[in-house]
Amino acid sequence: MPGTLYLIPNTLGATAALDHVIPDHVQATTAQLAHFVAENAKTARAFLKRVHAVHPLARPLQEIAITELNVNTRADALAGLLAPLRDGHDAGLLSEAGVPAVADPGADLVRLAHKEGIPVRPLVGPSSLLLAVMASGLNGQSFAFNGYLPTDAAARAKRLKDLEQRSRTEKQTQLFIETPYRNGALLEALATSCQPATLVCVATDISLPTESIRTQTAAQWKSALAANQGPDFHKKPTVFLLLAAG
């Protein structure tokens, strides 16, 4: 009988208090596992050390197997990552930040687990995307995550206009993210490419002590940027949302 693949959420930043965002039962489940798949073994060990401070690990950290799954992992290597589960051992899929398999390379492994009949159990934890929708005041009944936008300025502006039109037609909130050092360029593009009445939310460092969430019209953002009163989000993880005026 195969083991269970647990989808283990991580904090959204190292400064987040573990007990504020990761439920106790999730920490307790994590502490019992001896096999993990993670984007980065070093940061996975750091997370397990934080768990150990509350729930002692069932095995010494050096005896816990951590294999990596990231953008460099070949598709033909995925099957090997499930070997412990085929042998009957439970394992954890651990995200770098937030929940696994959402804006995260773990989705392919989860799909393969389903294909092989391996039970999959998602555990409760912070999702920057859902928290941003909750706090934005935008439409939470219909929303879509679009990943990263083009880095080329012209292509990015066109993509924003397309998303704004889709938002207007479907009354749907559009979400996207950016490499943190390009946050400023993306907000500038939103302020200048979108219609003045389009609502834009900038949600930075969600669940961290430095959290900042602001929703304004594109026109208000344009004025704020011109007055050098933009958000403090340089090199900080940020979720962007827009909802076009009807």
Results as ranks from 00 to 15, higher is better:
residue 1 M to R: 11
residue 2 P to I: 10
residue 4 T to E: 02
residue 5 L to I: 02
residue 6 Y to K: 03
residue 9 P to H: 10
residue 11 T to R: 00
residue 18 L to D: 07
residue 19 D to V: 15
residue 19 D to M: 15
residue 21 V to Q: 03
residue 22 I to T: 07
residue 26 V to A: 08
residue 27 Q to V: 15
residue 28 A to S: 08
residue 29 T to P: 03
residue 30 T to W: 09
residue 32 Q to C: 12
residue 33 L to M: 06
residue 38 A to N: 00
residue 43 T to G: 06
residue 47 F to W: 00
residue 51 V to M: 09
residue 53 A to Q: 15
residue 57 L to W: 08
residue 57 L to D: 06
residue 63 E to L: 15
residue 64 I to R: 07
residue 64 I to S: 08
residue 66 I to A: 05
residue 66 I to Q: 04
residue 66 I to K: 07
residue 67 T to Y: 09
residue 70 N to P: 02
residue 71 V to N: 15
residue 74 R to V: 08
residue 75 A to Y: 11
residue 76 D to I: 03
residue 76 D to N: 12
residue 78 L to R: 05
residue 80 G to Y: 11
residue 80 G to H: 14
residue 89 H to R: 10
residue 94 L to E: 05
residue 94 L to S: 01
residue 95 S to D: 09
residue 96 E to K: 12
residue 96 E to V: 04
residue 98 G to M: 06
residue 99 V to L: 08
residue 100 P to R: 01
residue 107 A to G: 11
residue 108 D to S: 14
residue 108 D to E: 13
residue 111 R to Y: 02
residue 112 L to I: 15
residue 113 A to W: 09
residue 116 E to Q: 14
residue 117 G to I: 14
residue 119 P to G: 05
residue 121 R to K: 08
residue 128 S to Q: 11
residue 130 L to R: 05
residue 130 L to C: 09
residue 136 S to W: 13
residue 138 L to K: 08
residue 138 L to E: 00
residue 139 N to F: 14
residue 140 G to F: 12
residue 143 F to E: 03
residue 143 F to Q: 05
residue 146 N to F: 10
residue 149 L to Y: 03
residue 149 L to R: 02
residue 150 P to Y: 11
residue 151 T to V: 13
residue 152 D to C: 13
residue 152 D to K: 15
residue 155 A to R: 13
residue 159 R to S: 09
residue 159 R to F: 06
residue 160 L to Y: 03
residue 160 L to R: 02
residue 162 D to F: 09
residue 162 D to E: 12
residue 162 D to P: 00
residue 169 T to F: 10
residue 169 T to M: 04
residue 170 E to W: 10
residue 172 Q to Y: 11
residue 173 T to I: 14
residue 174 Q to K: 06
residue 174 Q to R: 11
residue 175 L to K: 03
residue 175 L to N: 06
residue 175 L to G: 00
residue 176 F to G: 02
residue 177 I to M: 13
residue 182 R to L: 13
residue 184 G to S: 09
residue 187 L to S: 04
residue 188 E to I: 08
residue 189 A to V: 09
residue 190 L to R: 06
residue 192 T to F: 03
residue 192 T to M: 08
residue 193 S to R: 09
residue 194 C to V: 05
residue 195 Q to K: 10
residue 197 A to D: 13
residue 202 V to E: 03
residue 204 T to I: 15
residue 205 D to E: 14
residue 206 I to D: 00
residue 207 S to V: 10
residue 207 S to H: 07
residue 208 L to P: 03
residue 211 E to D: 11
residue 211 E to L: 14
residue 212 S to M: 13
residue 212 S to W: 13
residue 215 T to K: 12
residue 216 Q to A: 07
residue 216 Q to T: 07
residue 219 A to R: 00
residue 223 S to H: 10
residue 224 A to F: 01
residue 226 A to T: 03
residue 227 A to M: 11
residue 227 A to P: 06
residue 228 N to S: 14
residue 229 Q to L: 13
residue 230 G to N: 04
residue 233 F to S: 07
residue 236 K to C: 02
residue 236 K to N: 04
residue 237 P to K: 02
residue 238 T to V: 08
residue 239 V to F: 07
residue 240 F to M: 01
residue 240 F to A: 01
residue 245 A to E: 15
residue 246 G to C: 10
